[in-house]
């Protein structure tokens, strides 16, 4: 084994370490979960400790798509389009039960989980989830990013 493979392996780890602490989020906020998302983002719980404090409202500059709140059938094409516009590498977080499974909405208007539209990396259940569980989900995502696991 020469220096090349060793160097390559370590480089991946270094990139993963750098990426997991520089999460640029795109918050796709549609419903009441947005309040809990804001609570998590603000100083009391402070996602900036995890390097995820800088929110980009352009999908082209974001790494992680936070889907926060109910997605209706009418909104589904917009979500798909935002996901397609994001540059790779990209990750998706389903925030709240509505995005995970449709939640208690079982009707003509609601998409039954965003994983019917786009691949999801981390599911954060709750209606809405506590900020602690959001941070837990964020740390799980960081592990995934550091390990270089990709789903796109």
């Amino acid at each position: 084994m020469g220096l090349g493979p060793f160097f390559g392996a370590k480089l991946d780890e270094a990139i993963g370490w750098a990426r997991k602490y520089s999460i640029f989020q795109y918050p796709f906020v549609t419903a009441c979960c947005g309040m809990e998302y804001m609570a998590t983002a603000c100083s009391h719980y402070d996602v900036d400790r995890f390097g995820a404090g800088l929110v980009r409202f352009s999908p082209r500059q974001a790494d992680v798509l936070f889907v926060v709140g109910t997605i209706s059938h009418k909104l589904a094409p917009a979500l798909k389009r935002v996901y397609d516009q994001m540059c790779e590498p990209k990750w998706v977080v389903a925030f709240g039960v509505c995005t995970c499974t449709g939640g208690f909405y079982d009707n003509y208007a609601t998409v039954m989980g965003i994983d019917t539209l786009i691949p999801v990396d981390v599911y954060i259940p709750g209606c809405p989830p506590r900020p602690e569980s959001v941070l837990d989900g964020l740390m799980k995502l960081q592990e995934k990013i550091a390990a270089g696991a990709q789903r796109y």
């Binding site: 094409p77 389009r81 079982d106």
Partner: peptide, 9 residues
């Protein structure tokens, strides 16, 4: 419980 077909972009 009718499901509508998903619509594309």
């Amino acid at each position: 419980n009718k499901r509508q077909p998903l619509i594309g972009p």
